[in-house]
Design a protein around this nucleic acid. Structure first.
Length: 291
DNA sequence: CTGCAGGGGTAAA
DNA sequence: TTTACCCCTGCA
């Protein structure tokens, strides 16, 4: 993979990434703060910056806070050093279902998101649906985050700091529409704000140790921990088993009636260090092939 | 229109 | 291993 970049004022154009599909990137359940605009672009908040993304043919065009922030933050956020074409080829060689899956989910990329935001977002995601998850997170940012800017009549806020959420009452958190997850969110925020669990060094641990640490947090089970490890800690061997992936693994890999944990272990062994990518393709395969 | 299952799971029994 | 859980949506 040979990529090149062109800087033009507040836009950065990246060439040579291979196929890009913004819908696959932003609507595969890995992130909740990106929204499609009328012209097919996506606007989202990354830490303290409002970022707009467009696909122009096979070019990725990022319109945002300039070159410095791109180099320090967005380059990593969009995982631009990873060769997804190569990963698809490697995965497609593993077996026939995966060969099919990689063709369904073309143009996908795994984003490298901020750990604290990812943690809370996926606690909210459990036994929940995407519109409601997005609504709760948006409300949380609006009420308790810091105002960034107004753009096209929309006000943008960053994701609130752990200390802010830790100081809210359970009732105040309940008003965000998170239901019974209110107490999970509060307990987890307290654990993070107090330093009981240190998110900043978690990515240095192994997958197993990181997962153990995350599962100490209220509201974080195996699936949520895997999502946090995959989407914010670069643990690409994580294999989160949600209902969609479960369906595929039942149907195509002969794992009917197996527990989520068994399926997770099978995935991790079968796809190895590419498990996380495999999971993303399987997710699309399940949803779009309607099995 | 009302009723009810089910949703990208987890904690607790 | 099984069950309740908040609440919104889709569908019978």
């Amino acid at each position: 993979m040979k990529t090149s970049m062109e800087f033009e004022n507040d836009r950065i154009r990246i060439k040579g990434l291979g196929k890009i599909n913004l819908e696959h990137i932003f609507e595969c359940g890995q992130c909740f703060r990106w929204n499609r605009t009328a012209n097919g672009h996506y606007v989202g908040v990354v830490r303290h910056y409002v970022v707009e993304v467009a696909a122009d043919g096979d070019d990725l065009v990022i319109k945002g806070p300039g070159m410095e922030v791109f180099n320090d933050l967005l380059h990593d956020y969009f995982d631009l050093d990873t060769d997804y074409g190569k990963i698809r080829e490697q995965l497609a060689r593993i077996d026939e279902p995966m060969a099919q899956a990689t063709s369904y989910g073309y143009g996908i990329r795994i984003l490298n998101q901020e750990p604290w935001e990812t943690l809370i977002s996926f606690i909210i995601s459990g036994n929940n649906n995407i519109p409601r998850i997005k609504k709760s997170i948006e409300l949380m940012c609006r009420k308790y985050g810091t105002f960034i800017e107004s753009k096209d009549g929309i006000e943008y806020y960053n994701f609130p700091e752990p200390e802010v959420i830790a100081n809210l009452s359970v009732e105040a958190i309940r008003e965000l529409g998170v239901g019974y997850r209110d107490k999970y969110i509060r307990a987890t925020a307290v654990a993070i704000a107090s330093g009981e669990v240190d998110l900043s060094n978690l990515h240095l641990l192994s997958y197993d140790d990181g997962k153990k640490e995350l599962m100490k947090l209220m509201g974080v089970g195996s699936k949520v921990a895997d999502c946090i490890l995959l989407f914010s800690m670069r643990k690409r061997n994580a294999f989160p088993v949600d209902t969609w992936v479960k369906k595929v693994m039942h149907h195509y890999y002969g794992l009917e009636g197996q527990s989520n944990e068994t399926i997770r272990q099978y995935g991790e062994n079968h796809f190895g260090h590419l498990s996380g990518y495999a999971q993303q393709y399987l997710f699309f395969y399940a949803r779009e092939s309607k099995i």
